[in-house]
């Protein structure tokens, strides 16, 4: 039996818009992956610890609050502190194009802004590793 892909989908920070995260989680499940879904209002610390305990291959965070720069920075700080294996991070939600570079410099491997198609996301995740 080959290794199953495990993905963590989480809402980071305080916004309550989880439709997008839920749809992505469902799509990944239906593509045959194991999706750990932690729902609304997770701190960066919680996301990293969950990712470690669940041994996921990818962390997907959804942010629609506009606080993505601060939150994603915290996420990577926590990851460095707790973990010596770097887990790829993708960000989805409402992210202005101007901020893409900043997030990528932090270590985000891919950003799926509004208008991204499910197919695009699936292709990306399936090709990981």
């Amino acid at each position: 039996m080959s290794a199953k892909k495990r993905v963590l989908i989480a809402k980071l920070g305080l916004d309550g818009h989880d439709r997008g995260a839920k749809i992505v989680a469902r799509a990944l499940k239906e593509a045959g992956m194991e999706v750990i879904y932690t729902g609304l209002r997770n701190t960066a610390e919680e996301v990293v610890r969950t990712a470690v305990q669940e041994d996921v291959d990818l962390i997907g965070v959804s942010i629609l609050s506009g606080a993505h720069k601060t939150l994603v920075k915290k996420l990577f700080e926590n990851m460095e502190a707790e973990n010596n294996r770097t887990i790829p991070v993708v960000v989805g939600g409402i992210i202005p194009k101007d901020d893409y570079n900043y997030l990528k410099k932090l270590g985000v491997t891919k950003i799926f802004g509004s208008g991204s198609s499910i197919k695009e996301i699936l292709n990306y995740v399936e090709e990981l590793r």
Binding site: V35, I36, Y37, G39, R49, Q53, E54
Partner: peptide, 28 residues
């Protein structure tokens, strides 16, 4: 899911009060 082979693991959502505690380890 027998059809897709995927799974939606959502039990952690309900365990928010304790999942930060260093003495707890949760695995879905």
């Amino acid at each position: 899911s027998q059809r897709s082979g995927g799974a939606f693991l959502g039990d952690r959502i309900r365990m928010k009060d304790i999942n930060n505690d260093q003495r707890i380890f949760i695995r879905s």
